[in-house]
Design a protein around this nucleic acid. Structure first.
Lengths: 112, 112
DNA sequence: TTGAAGTGCTACCCCAGGGTTGCACAATTT
DNA sequence: AAATTGTGCAACCCTGGGGTAGCACTTCAA
């Protein structure tokens, strides 16, 4: 179930969702209703956000009796961070190569 | 002008924008019209995306005669990656502390 | 000086998604 | 059994933003 970085980025792009993650990390585990009391939105909104976060692999929910307890999955956050760093590195190398080619003497090049 | 990670995440959340960044990194520098020919959207759409990316600090545009050439700024991507990694580390420590507290023996308050 | 190529801007369409309310159903508690 | 608490839909509103078309303006090359 390799994480989709696109989903992670979309999930993290929303401020309320980031705030929700912050509160959840602070609590350790918590239910949607419990989280809603510490956020400026309704319980249903929190549930929606939790679903998005769970689909992105940023959070895991497990039923415990009548309530569902959620928990942050820090590994997927770390994986996304690595992906971002790799992306930056790749672009860096490419840009460096281009710059070097531009400074090269008479390097023949194909371009359309 | 410290970058706003929220802006970066929003900017990277869009697939077209990521594709645009990819093409731009591949080209080194390019104008909006040039980029539009290599993307499935119109020139105006590309311009909009470039504005978003520039506001997020992911791209820099400079006028060159009658055209504006854009270029990827990899440092802000790297900075965001670091921010994400730090965030994951913080949450990790916090969750670990919570877990340890939960597993701790019921240390009763002893006093005499 | 004329025309082509590139940019800037405005208005507009359209829909994904963040937020809400309301109610039905399930699981505890008393 | 009744009241309480929590979850799970479903319908709905409304703004934001991705995308387009159209036109005015600027720069460069014949």
């Amino acid at each position: 179930m390799a994480i989709d970085v696109g989903d992670v980025l979309v999930a993290l792009a929303d401020p309320t969702r980031r705030q929700l993650l912050g509160v959840l990390a602070e609590q350790g585990r918590a239910s949607a209703t419990a989280l809603a009391t510490r956020l400026p939105v309704s319980r249903q909104a929190v549930v929606k956000h939790l679903n998005v976060l769970e689909s992105a692999g940023l959070v895991a929910g497990a039923r415990a009796g009548r309530e569902v307890l959620y928990q942050v999955r820090t590994d997927s956050v770390q994986e996304s961070a690595r992906w971002l760093a790799d992306l930056a590195a790749t672009w860096d190398r490419r840009l460096l190569a281009i710059k070097r080619a531009a400074e090269a003497p008479v390097a023949p090049d194909r371009e359309s």
